[in-house]
Design a protein around this nucleic acid. Structure first.
Lengths: 197, 197
DNA sequence: GTTCGCCTTGTGCGGATGCCCAATATCGAC
DNA sequence: GTCGATATTGGGCATCCGCACAAGGCGAAC
């Protein structure tokens, strides 16, 4: 029945994927109608047929990627037995990105774009608010003090370390793990393990 | 003698200032020859007389700002008596920026640009390496464990929190201070103060 | 087989871009 | 005053931009 409609959805997917690639390669403002069309292997006119504007395509593509990645990072962490394992999983997710890979760059580019676009800012803010909420719930289960604030610092630190990592590859999970461990390790009143006397 | 040369230097300063403003307002890749010239109040041709390219102007202007701000943030911290006061000073510097002010945005834009330009990356990397070095020396004086790694996490966290702050203004220094205090507060073997036990 | 709706293409338009360049202004040296 | 070096201007060129649009498939419904 809807063979044409299905093909249209497939093209929309290809355009979103191409947009994400180009945001990472050239930067948000440098993604062009013709560039994304060529990368997706379609005619230039198709972009404005499927999307109201290039900017709208970028917003949709970037938000989709962020939701996917946040979900993939939060879900295993939530099932961690203790703070140690959860932090190890979170740092593993950090080590999967170098600061110069497409995912890192799209995240950072989208943050910048969101700082200048109130609508996009609200949507991106909702994504990280959900991630922080899930992280806080996990931290509370682990007995960490001030779970909400700790989650906020953790989320910020992960993105900030990604930012710095592009300039200093030595900034691995192994290097920062011990320090971040102090953040989640134990509240002043409820050490989970190894809280030496 | 060199009145003409002095005037040239003044124009170069105006162009750098205009470039910084426009990087913040529109984004690195969206700064144009004519835009920066108009903002600086000079003819469009002057940009390519004083600078080899728009990109070179942006690099020079952004790096100058970063050096200034890093110096202004590191210098008082180094003179702090203990970890508490130093962290308070650092968080004060954080609270001076909202994530959407020019300084924040230029920092973040420059990080992104540096991730795509090896030369710029090396220069920006040198700036934050110096900042981290000075922070590490201060942390060592305060008795914090693993001062280098702690400094790296602190520097990353500050920039990351700036990034998130544009989307969530509730992320103030007061909110994250208690958590960051765990990072610098005391090593496992050398608490500086208030190490209850 | 014809009609209809969605998808797809290429081209065109007005405008903006980076950079170059000839012409001009400014000002110290002599 | 004249000269020469530096600073400055505005315009021009080739190229790219976002978006609109007419024209053409192409499968499903009838």
């Amino acid at each position: 029945m809807a063979t044409a409609a299905e093909k249209g959805e497939q093209v929309r997917r290809r355009l979103r994927r191409a947009a994400v690639e180009l945001i990472a390669e050239t930067g948000w403002r440098a993604v062009t109608t013709r560039g994304v069309a060529e990368r997706a292997g379609v005619g230039a006119g198709l972009v404005h047929y499927h999307f109201p504007s290039v900017e709208a395509l970028l917003r949709e593509a970037a938000l989709g990627l962020m939701r996917e990645v946040a979900e993939r990072a939060a879900e295993p962490m939530e099932r961690a037995a203790d703070a140690d394992e959860g932090l190890r999983l979170l740092l593993g997710a950090l080590d999967a990105h170098t600061g110069t890979d497409p995912v890192s760059l799209v995240f950072l580019e989208t943050y910048l774009a969101a700082a200048r676009d109130a609508d996009l800012g609200a949507r991106v803010g909702a994504v990280i608010a959900e991630f922080r909420g899930r992280t806080a719930r996990w931290l509370r289960r682990c007995g960490t003090a001030e779970p909400e604030r700790t989650a906020a610092v953790l989320a910020g630190a992960v993105d900030g370390l990604l930012l710095h990592r592009a300039l200093d590859p030595a900034l691995t999970a192994a290097a920062v793990g011990p320090v971040l461990h102090r953040v989640v390790g134990a509240g002043p009143s409820a050490p989970t393990e190894g809280g030496r006397g």
